[in-house]
Write a protein that binds this DNA or RNA. Sequence first.
RNA 1: GGCGCCAUAGCCAAGUGGUAAGGCAGAGGACUGCAAAUCCUUCAUCCCCCGGUUCGAAUCCGGGUGGCGCCUCCA
Length: 488
Amino acid sequence: MGLKIFNTLTGRKEDFVPLQEGKVGMYVCGVTVYDLSHIGHARCYVAFDVVYRYLRGSGRSVRYVRNFTDVDDKIINRAAQTGDAPVDLATRNIEAFHRDMDSLGCLHPDVEPRVTDHIPEIIALVERIIGNGHAYAAPDGSVYFSIDSFPQYGQLSKRNLDDMVAGASERVDEDPNKRNPLDFVLWKPAKPGEPWWESPWGRGRPGWHIECSAMSARHLGETFDIHGGGKDLVFPHHENEIAQSRAASGKEFVRYWLHNGFVNVDQEKMSKSLGNFFTIRDVLALYHPEAIRMFLLSTHYRSPINYSARNLDEATGRIEYMIETVGKVEAALADGGPEGGEAAADVARVRGAIGEAMDDDFNTAAALGHLFELCRAANDWVARKRKTPGRIETLSAIRKVLAEAAGIFGILERPPATVLSEIRDRDVARLGLDVVDIERVIAERWAARQAKDFARADALRTELSARNIDLMDSPQGSTWRVRRQAQE
RNA sequence: GGCGCCAUAGCCAAGUGGUAAGGCAGAGGACUGCAAAUCCUUCAUCCCCCGGUUCGAAUCCGGGUGGCGCCUCCA
């Protein structure tokens, strides 16, 4: 069976058939850079990072475009507050966004266009839409898209125009410049002090929706395969993109629309306007990037996911287990053993199961479940006697599958010891533990243990345990980790 | 008011017609000086409620209840 993708446009899972076999054009709406990004953005871009990784990993050639909205009301307003030039504010936040994405292990898109670099394309597109009779210039220098000229309007969001007009009349003031209250702006005139570009309609700047139509056409063509973004973009943003792009080109715009669910806090959408958001860097200070990815990928991308300390702790435990497993498999293979057997059949089975899960609308939750089974088996095989027939072959097959999965999920790619220590650093920071003192006690206990003073050693273990420290004794000495307990 | 989504064990979470993946927590066991880690076993006769379709439904249909989202900027 091949890849199936849930398409918002049809409301169904469909076989994924790209325009050109083996090639995929993919556009994901990026951020408006007026502020730092929050964990809700992280969810979106991690989800599509995995889509990108999976498509590439399965041998397709992918062109991934993700834009920056760097001119917009919010940027202008924020810049006015802070006294920055809008362009400086935008540039600063783009840099911050890049750092956040890098921290989260997201691959770079192939193109990251900025709106301000595409003004000529945008103007040309608006002119074309006007030329086709789907937009009109208003006396004040605005250009509006004419909803009434586009009968398919509402197709993506499954809205009925009449209902919307009725609903809108209650909350939207009649705008004398608009022919229909639902008409949306393609080009808006600049107010004094605002950034502007010369255009056939006077000095102004692009409306919000037109940029994505212009940039996707420029970098992917007028018709392309995948367009993604958060569920909140379905209406009006993506609905308007469809109207603009089709009004201009007359062609199909996007074949598959993908939308990710929200990150909730206390069962409520995380958003700037509600003020209940956590920035990516705030979260990164508390939890390891791989733990965050594990958290985000443990739920299907279309479902809501709840941000909570408990869930992040659980995800941390899950990733820690996997990382430790990778470390043990590598150590066992480095240690070697008699060869000549056959790898256990279960490894291939799990590999297939992961592929099937991913082919089913990128079901990372199910895929990770299978990966857990593999880790269980891995630990079992590591612990078996060296001469067990097929041990080396099985472990080596497991390592291969783990590496493959690592490439898809963007986890388990770095040296296990390094990552484990980074995880512990965050645990220590979160609980405010005194590492120097902890290690002092551990050394003291080790000495007592060497002297066979087990009563003393146990007392010290108990003391450390009360501070959430778990000790792991080995012939070489004791290592330690912070015990995470489920809160609430 | 219009449109849409969701409801699976203490918790997180897959599963969209064939008889409940996976994880956390819990219980028992192996291992350990004691632990931790690891492994094994166990943990939903049942999937919000009521009807219906079917040989068979968590999965389809109708109704209800509860939660969420979009309709204004929003990943």
